[in-house]
């Protein structure tokens, strides 16, 4: 051994870099995303372009998270995740024929990974930096206001309720529940998604109903009113 001091120095360097990597993995949201989330969530675009890709998707795309979610909601949900899509990511993989009609096979639905408060905070910060599709949300601006016939539009005029639950246990199963939508989602995202779901996700099974922009404003104002209601007694 001609350079024992060098070997010791290298070992010390190795140990220091290892332990700092450990600290980083707890605090650095981007690292957590890469290591613990990327197996199910796309952190880079584009969205699924074929049915084969759509069917393989294990979780919602997160590469435009910063243009989609309310940060406070993300942080809270990651610590206490509750189901949003009653029939899972791709409903077809979670349904079976029932006595009267097809039903959700709940045994196929798995609970979501839970993060600690520190992790959730770091991840929420990292997610808000993922900002694909800014050109879509930049075009939208909500004019907040009352929505006298928003509910009628959602249920009857456009038939959105066929796929979305407007309160726990009431409405369709193949899309996300909407009675929490405005807690979760930014207004500009909702306006843009309803206007053209395929611009966000070309193969998604939500149709473009071609609602005029004024009516989309009413629909989103309705979703905002709806999310202020307390449904804790219904569930």
């Amino acid at each position: 051994m001609r350079y024992p001091h060098m070997i010791i120095a290298l070992c010390a360097l190795f140990i220091v870099s290892m332990s700092s990597a450990k600290i980083a993995s707890a605090a650095d949201g981007t690292e957590i995303l890469k290591q613990r989330c990327a197996s199910c969530h796309a952190l880079k675009g584009p969205a699924a372009k074929t049915l084969a890709q759509l069917w393989q998707r294990k979780g919602p795309d997160l590469f435009y998270a910063g243009n989609k979610y309310n940060k406070t909601w993300v942080e809270a949900w990651l610590q206490n995740p509750k189901r949003i899509r009653p029939a899972g990511m791709f409903y077809r993989q979670h349904i079976k024929p029932g006595p009267k009609h097809d039903i959700v096979d709940k045994s196929t639905l798995k609970p979501h990974i839970i993060l600690t408060k520190t992790e959730a905070k770091a991840v929420a910060n990292a997610l808000m930096k993922l900002k694909a599709n800014s050109e879509l949300t930049a075009k939208e601006k909500l004019v907040p206001g009352p929505s006298p016939i928003g509910e009628m539009m959602f249920d009857k005029i456009y038939g959105c309720m066929a796929c979305h639950q407007i309160e726990p246990g009431y409405g369709g199963m193949s899309g996300p529940e909407v009675f929490t939508a405005a807690k979760r989602l930014q207004p500009a995202f909702m306006l843009s998604y309803i206007k053209n779901p395929q611009a966000w996700d070309p193969k998604i099974w939500m149709p473009n109903k071609h609602a005029p922009v004024d009516n989309i404003q009413q629909l989103v104002n309705y979703l905002i009113e709806l999310s202020k209601e307390d449904f804790s007694d219904v569930k």
Binding site: T50, L51, L54, W55, A87, Y91, R92, I95, K96, P97, K100, H101, D102, I103, V104, K156, M161, A162, C163, Y170, G171, G172, M173, S174, K203, W205
Partner: peptide, 30 residues
């Protein structure tokens, strides 16, 4: 895409796995 794949992605949510109108969404549809 193949017609069957499209049907089983977009239509069965309402028209049912078996195409018999008994989809997972129909309970609260008027």
């Amino acid at each position: 895409e193949q017609a069957r794949d499209n049907y089983e992605t977009y239509c069965i949510q309402c028209h049912g796995i078996q195409g018999n109108g008994m989809g997972v969404n129909i309970r609260d549809m008027s």
